[in-house]
């Protein structure tokens, strides 16, 4: 926790921060790798929801270069295994996520990201 699947779904939501507010940038991260059950059906169903560029860039920043730059049309088992590992087995336990647009810092502690906004940031 925070897994890259989650990271791929969270955008900055501060008031008036609507463009360039994704992906949030990881900082000072502590990673853990934990095995998860491989479920190809879930992965195939989830693929259309992925922002591919954000996922590839983030995985590379964390040192994993196994994903192709373009999301493939045809998927084989090896690709799905890599995708599984990246989406579900890399956990960011500590650190923070910063909005590339407004600079809001979302801290992560014991694997739980604090996505609350401050008073002046809500609509």
């Amino acid at each position: 926790m925070v897994r890259l699947l989650t990271h791929n779904l969270l955008a900055c939501h501060a008031k008036d921060c609507n463009t360039n507010n994704f992906p949030l940038q990881f900082k000072d991260v502590q990673l853990e790798i934990r095995e998860a059950d491989f479920n190809p059906e879930f992965l195939k169903g989830f693929m259309p929801k992925i922002d591919w560029k954000a996922l590839v860039d983030t995985a590379r920043q964390l040192g994993d270069t196994s994903l192709p730059l373009e999301q493939p049309e045809m998927v084989d088992d090896e690709f799905l295994k890599n995708l599984h590992h990246i989406l579900l087995e890399i956990h960011v336990e500590e650190g923070s996520m910063t909005c590339p647009n407004c600079g809001h810092v979302y801290p992560i502690s014991n694997g739980i990201p604090n996505m609350l906004l401050a008073e002046h940031e809500i609509g």
């Binding site: 926790m1 897994r3 989650t6 955008a11 939501h13 579900l88 694997g111 739980i112 990201p113 609509g123």
Partner: peptide, 12 residues
């Protein structure tokens, strides 16, 4: 999958 702290009326 994950737990996160936020208010549903201001969600990310």
């Amino acid at each position: 999958i994950d737990l996160a702290t936020f208010d549903i009326t201001n969600n990310p």
